[in-house]
Design a binder for these strands. Structure first.
Lengths: 211, 211
DNA sequence: GTCTATATCTCGATAGAC
DNA sequence: GTCTATCGAGATATAGAC
C-alpha cells in the first residue's frame, strides 16, 4: 500500500479537479484517500494549504512533460505529429491536471496567468515553446506557409484538449467514442495531424497565402 | 432598474458559471443581484431549483442561436466562415453560458450528455447539425476533401471555444490579446477561417487524401 | 500516525416584521 | 416584495485517546 501522503495527494487532485476549490469537500477527499478527515488535517493544516500544494505539483508536472521528444524531431512535419500525439497523450494520462487548470481559469483565480507566463518564458523545453520556435523556423525556410505562430499554437492546443472536456457529449454523438474511446483518441490524433499538416505544409503546386 | 427576477437570473448564471453548482454561494448570488439572501429564497425556493432554471434557459439559448444564418449560406466556404464567426460571437456574448456548460462537464453531471443528444437530434437548425450536414454534402460534391465530419466539427468548435476559457493565459502570451481583445478575437476568426479553408477546400492542383 | 468525538463556523433555508 | 434575525445541517478544523 502506498504512502498516505501520496494517496491524499491523488485524492485531492481528483476531487479539486472535479469540484473546484470551493466545491470540494474535505470529507470526500478523506474518503477517496481511505483515511479520516482528522488525518487529512494532520498532514495539511487547512484546505487552502492542501490546494496550494496540489496546484504547485500540477504546474511542475506541466513544465517537464514531453518537451525533449520534440527537440529531437527533424522536419516540422515531425514536430507537428509529435506535438499532437504528445499533447493528447499527456492530457489523457493527466486528466485531473487538465481539469484543475480549466477550473482555475473558470474561477478567475489570478494565480494561473502570472505563473504560466513565467514558465513559458523560462523553460526552453516546454513543448509549447518548442512548437512555436520550430514553427517560426519552418516558416523562415518556406517549409510551411506564413501564419501567426501563436494563433496556430492556440488552435492546435485547443483541438488536443477541449474534446477531453466535453467527452461525455462526444460519446453521445460519435459512435466510435461510445464504443472504444482509446481507438477514438487514436483516430483523433490522426485527424488532427492530417488537418493541420494539410493546412500548413506548402507543396510545390500550392502557393502560400497569408492572413 | 430592471426586474428583480432578471437581476437574480443574471447573477445566478454568473456565479454558477464561475464556481459551479456546489461551489456557488447563495449569499454571493444575492450580493451580485443587490438583494438579500431571504429575497432570493422568496423567488426560488432552493438552490437546486435556481440552478435548474438557469440551466434550462442556457440550453434553450444554445438551441436557437445562429442556425438560420447558416442555412442561407451558399457554398461550404461560406458555411465555414459563418459558422466560425457565428460561434465565436455567440460564445463571446454568452461567456457565462459556455462556462456553465464546461463546469457541468467537469463535475460529471449526467444531465448534459443526455440533453445534448436530444437537442442534436431534434433541432434541424442547430448550428452544429447544419454544419455537419453541409460538410457532408460538400464532400459528396467533391467541393472539399474527405474527412470525418464529426471530428472536423469537434476540431472547429474546440478552436472557437477553448481560447475563451484560457483567455487570462492568452493575455499573458499574445501581445494583441493583452492590448485589444476585440481586435484579437477578430484576428482569431480570420486565422481559423484561413486554417480550415486551406485544409479542407480542394483546389485543382491538390489531390484529396483521406484518413 | 491514525482514530473518535467535538468545537466552531459557514451556508442554505425559514420566520416574522415592515 | 423586501428586509433582519435565526435555526439547523453540514462543513472545516481541533482535542485528545490509542
Amino acid at each position: 500500500m502506498r504512502e498516505t501522503d501520496d494517496r491524499i495527494f491523488d485524492a485531492a487532485l481528483s476531487v479539486f479537479a472535479r469540484k473546484g476549490k470551493d466545491g470540494a469537500r474535505m470529507q470526500e477527499i478523506a474518503d477517496e484517500a481511505g483515511i479520516s478527515k482528522a488525518l487529512l488535517h494532520y498532514y495539511y493544516r487547512s484546505k487552502d494549504q492542501l490546494y496550494e500544494k496540489v496546484f504547485e505539483h500540477v504546474m511542475s508536472r506541466l513544465e517537464r512533460s514531453f518537451g525533449e521528444r520534440l527537440m529531437k524531431a527533424g522536419s516540422f512535419e515531425e514536430v507537428l505529429g509529435s506535438f499532437i500525439a504528445g499533447y493528447v497523450d499527456f492530457v489523457r494520462q493527466n486528466l485531473d491536471v487538465m481539469r484543475l487548470m480549466v477550473n482555475e481559469h473558470l474561477t478567475g483565480s489570478p494565480v494561473v496567468a502570472g505563473r504560466l507566463r513565467t514558465i513559458m518564458d523560462s523553460s526552453e523545453t516546454m513543448p509549447t515553446v518548442v512548437f512555436v520556435r520550430r514553427l517560426e523556423e519552418a516558416m523562415e525556410r518556406g517549409e510551411v506557409r506564413r501564419v501567426d505562430a501563436l494563433q496556430m499554437l492556440i488552435t492546435v492546443m485547443s483541438s488536443c484538449i477541449f474534446f477531453f472536456i466535453i467527452f461525455p457529449t462526444i460519446r453521445a454523438i460519435h459512435p466510435l467514442a461510445a464504443t472504444d474511446s482509446d481507438q477514438f483518441i487514436e483516430a483523433r490524433k490522426q485527424h488532427l495531424t492530417d488537418v493541420f499538416r494539410t493546412s500548413l505544409l506548402t507543396s510545390q503546386e500550392q502557393a502560400g497565402e497569408d492572413t
